[in-house]
Amino acid sequence: MKNRLKLLGLILVLGAPMPMAWAMLHWQIGIPEHQVAHGNLGHDRPDLSQWPIGQLPDQSQWWLVWSTHQVCDETCLAEADKWWRMHRALGRQAERVLRLRIGSDTDLLPGEIATLWEGEAPDWHDAYRVWLVDPQGQIVTEYPAQVDARSVHKDLERLLKRNPEK
């Protein structure tokens, strides 16, 4: 009898997670409502390949995309330096990320790619807005202008960690 109780207890312990998970999903009990990303996940931006910008190198890497005005002023240079430093802070993972500046192709920092808007910039474009783009070209996270680089850095590290290199 003692062995049967042990077996029954073991079956309950090992079999309980599935019915509990089903009940949580079915009745929406205990499911976290918050998100951990610092940027906007709920956006309706087209894929990077559909943006009205010049031809990009065919890279299957993550992209840190940020926009600027046509003329790179002091604010633009400060933003470029901020994103260069954030990129360097990724350490060994930095080679998996490309930085793309849209709007100005002057005063580039090392490792930065620049392109211009072809014709009119889209209406959802704001100067100094930042986007994280996955290797397939889909916008993962969007950040407002003048966002703190630490927030983007944390999100990018989390994305790179959860999407290991093949």
Rank of each mutant, 00 (worst) to 15 (best):
T141M: 12
D155G: 04
A80N: 08
L90A: 00
D44M: 09
A78F: 04
N3T: 01
R85Y: 03
H69E: 15
A89P: 01
R85L: 08
H125G: 05
W66L: 06
W131P: 02
T141H: 01
V65R: 11
K154P: 00
L160T: 02
M1Y: 02
G119K: 06
G30R: 04
H43P: 05
N40C: 02
A149D: 11
W83R: 09
G42W: 15
A149T: 09
I11N: 05
T106C: 06
A80P: 09
K154A: 15
W51T: 01
D105R: 12
E33A: 15
Q50H: 06
R129T: 13
W131L: 15
Y143G: 07
A94M: 04
P110Q: 02
V36W: 15
P110T: 01
V65H: 13
M18Q: 01
W62Q: 01
P110V: 03
E112Q: 03
G42E: 15
L5M: 03
I102P: 04
M86I: 01
H38I: 01
I102E: 00
Q50P: 00
H153V: 00
P19W: 03
W117G: 05
E142A: 14
A80W: 10
L56V: 08
D58G: 03
D44A: 09
L12E: 00
W51L: 03
S60I: 07
D155R: 08
L41W: 14
L7R: 14
W66A: 04
A114C: 13
H34E: 14
T115F: 13
V65L: 15
A94V: 01
E120L: 00
K82A: 02
E165Y: 13
E118A: 03
D105L: 11
A23R: 03
V97P: 09
E95D: 13
P135L: 10
H26A: 15
W66P: 00
D148I: 08
A16P: 04
Q35P: 00
V65T: 07
H69D: 15
V133D: 07
L48M: 11
L116H: 12
Y128L: 12
I113P: 02
K6S: 02
H34T: 10
W84F: 10
Q28N: 15
K82V: 02
H34K: 11
D73S: 08
M20F: 13
R158E: 07
A149Y: 04
P144D: 07
C76P: 10
K82F: 00
Q136V: 02
P17E: 05
E79Y: 03
D155Q: 05
D126K: 04
Y128E: 13
R92T: 06
R96E: 10
L14G: 12
L77T: 11
D44V: 04
L48E: 07
V140S: 14
P144W: 05
H125W: 07
E79Q: 07
L116Q: 14
G9F: 14
P46W: 04
G39M: 07
Q55D: 12
I31Q: 13
D107R: 13
A127M: 14
G30T: 11
D107E: 13
P57V: 05
G39Y: 06
L10Q: 05
H69G: 13
R88F: 03
G111W: 07
H87S: 04
Q35T: 09
Q138I: 00
